[in-house]
Design a protein around this nucleic acid. Structure first.
Lengths: 243, 243
DNA sequence: TCAAAAAATGACGTAACGTCAAAAAATACA
DNA sequence: TGTATTTTTTGACGTTACGTCATTTTTTGA
């Protein structure tokens, strides 16, 4: 379905507002984002901004949904990685880290969104979209675990269901990103590389689960190289030679 | 040093305000906490509240500091648990979960505090206290890892320093609590018991590290019972027969 | 008892939210 | 092209909460 000129203009402005909001949030943080600020930066009036977004929170959720869409596509690519399920799982974990490195303050934004009182203010439809994205992400990771079970790479655990394994890894990953995004002086605590530390912790979980094939340092090295130069080459280039 | 009557009165009101703030935050959330609200509930005027706290955030940080002090004392008890270092580590993890179950919305509060723009508004001294508490907590966990290394229960890891091991476990624990505190329908995802899942994931990490003595289901059962009926008996009773 | 010091108050200035009647622009139609 | 109608944009307005500070009230102490 094609849009009229007017509709296209509106859509364009919608995007403009979102971009400006993202910019402001990046430079000054969510707490300094104001509707008037956006309007001013875009050279429109406040009322016009309110025609696109019912409230500040609505902008936030839409930005988050954009980012989560990106995350989902990274996850999908990871899930199709041509190897065993263990490596795919590692790819997903890596993708998550990459995702937060590429975007400016994605973790921060999500954190805001999850705060008490925010969900209530947001449009039904954005919220639904958000929940679907979330379900999509979790579902994808879950299916990797299940495929590993089917393939016999992972034995059925006596005390952890597949979704519970996902929960653990998910906790680890998001927890690590949160700590990293916080203002804690991790290096002062003796942490050299937060991402590498959490990734290695995650490998320990996989080994603890006896998820085959077990860890090998050589394989990890090769795998990371593959991620950097093939699977996520483009994304890695956006940040330069690190992680 | 003893206080004058006046000083005692002021201290008492200070506590009163904090308690009221905690109450409001519990019932309505941080976003609905207002200085006027506190003043009203305490039957004082706004100005008086401002004589105790420079701003809303200052109240938040002081409440967090209270709670973190409690957490630290739980951790200390865990660190003195009469067993090996692995079990002490598990006790710490358990204590963290217990702590968030006992308090009303502790995770939420900490999350707020870590948000961008909050630290800047807070008193130097409260901030310092907060950082010291944080350092104390991390340091304590770190020292358990180091004792395990010294005792030979844990071999030196080629790729993870002690603080990095702590980082992983810390990420896992705080990530899990965050997800639990969020409005995600974990049970719909198939997660039966979030705390138990993250605890078991943490055990997998320990096993992955080859931290002796390795997991045994029987031992875990015994250990949890000890936690519930001895080490943290009092705290567990505050919530009833679960976890 | 009363003057000086200390503490409590709430009116005030400011900022941001979200609304809505009026103004401006776009469109339809003669 | 000119006017009527619809759509869009605008910013003034009402509201809420913050944080300040001059004024009022209470306490203290001589």
């Amino acid at each position: 379905m094609t849009m009229s000129r007017k509709q296209r203009e509106i859509a364009k402005r919608h995007t403009l507002f979102l971009e400006i909001a993202r910019q402001i949030m990046h430079e000054e943080g969510f707490h300094l984002l104001s509707m008037e600020g956006i309007a001013e930066a875009a050279e429109y009036s406040k009322g016009t901004v309110y025609q696109h977004f019912t409230c500040k929170e609505e902008i936030l959720v839409q930005l988050c949904n954009q980012d989560m869409g990106e995350l989902l596509s990274l996850f999908q690519r990871a899930a199709e990685f041509d190897s065993n399920n263990r490596d795919r799982m590692i790819a997903v974990f890596y993708a998550h880290q990459l995702w937060s490195c590429i975007g400016d303050n994605r973790t921060d934004m999500l954190q805001h969104l999850s705060m008490h009182g925010v969900r209530d203010k947001v449009t039904e439809s954005s919220l639904k979209q958000h929940d679907e994205l979330e379900t999509g992400l979790v579902g994808l990771v879950n299916s990797i675990v299940e495929q590993a079970l089917e393939a016999g790479e992972l034995k059925k655990q006596k005390h952890l269901l597949a979704p519970e394994i996902v929960f653990g890894i998910w906790s680890l990953s998001s927890g690590a990103q949160l700590l990293k995004a916080s203002e804690l002086p991790l290096n002062e605590f003796g942490i050299r590389d937060a991402d590498m530390s959490s990734l290695r912790t995650m490998l320990l979980v996989l080994d603890g689960l006896d998820w085959q094939p077990l860890h090998s340092e050589a394989h990890l090295k090769k795998l990371l190289k593959q991620f950097r130069t093939q699977l996520f080459a483009e994304e890695v280039n956006q940040i330069g030679p690190d992680s």
